[in-house]
Amino acid sequence: MNKKLTEKLASGHSTCAGCGIPAIVRTVLGATDEPVIVANATGCLEVTTTIYPYTAWKVPYIHNAFENAAATISGVEAAQKILLKKGKIQKKAKLVVFGGDGGTYDIGLQSLSGALERGHDFLYVCYDNGGYMNTGGQRSGATPYGASTETEPAGEQSFGKAKQRKDLMEIVAAHGVKYLAQACVSNLRDLEKKAKKALEIEGPTFLLVLQPCTQVWKFPTSQYVSVGKLAMETNFWPLYEIEDGKYTINYTNPNPKPIERFLETQGRFKHLFKPENKHVIEEIQKTVDANVERLVNKVKE
């Protein structure tokens, strides 16, 4: 067991073999030397790290329901403030929330919105694996267009998810948050830099991290890093940050690989390579190109 990496989250958790979530958690929490308190929405990370009577967490940890992770951390922040005022604690701890895309895009959106609006001092990290993976891969607001899911399976009548994914970055940015960024688990150095920046800023901050899921995206357990890399190289997942409303692109590929290179690595897009579904791939490519163009224009603003 690596001593430095397991200072805050130990081994012995039961995430699937080849899951990237622990790498995200360790990188984000490793970005600060100060004490941290973690709140965790229901999701893969919660069910796998806290199997009674064992907990993999070495930091104070609160599990709550899908919908109220951000509300809970608001309460922790308020409690810290009053304890500090009364002199019962000398120093504030850093507050970090981890939520999956189900607990952030869909069910937890209202409490996240509330906490952002009230301006509590915390970092919200959403690991986006594009669905409700620990219950078998039902679709969520983050599932990409054309993916076959448990609740929207591909077949004769359907090509999988028929709706585009939600642009959560824009939703969070609309709250006037000081710092938010999009990162990918395949580039941990970039993620660490962003986490460090976010934790230093007073007020709410937000990180959206792509987390390729070996089970439901259907690829071999050894491949999460390379699938994430392809998501970046095809511009499906550009890395960028928004600081005080100013956009900065950290990584987009000027000569992007065709989106097929990313889609073909995963079983959930297998049906798209049938001739009758060619239009779906074209549509995905169009959206990806338009998104990058939109970001480039935002940077120029």
């Binding site: 690596n2 990496l5 989250l9 130990a10 990237g20």
Partner: peptide
């Protein structure tokens, strides 16, 4: 390989 290991098994 160290930070990518999901179980922090590599020292």
């Amino acid at each position: 390989c160290v930070p990518f290991c999901p179980d922090a098994c590599i020292e």
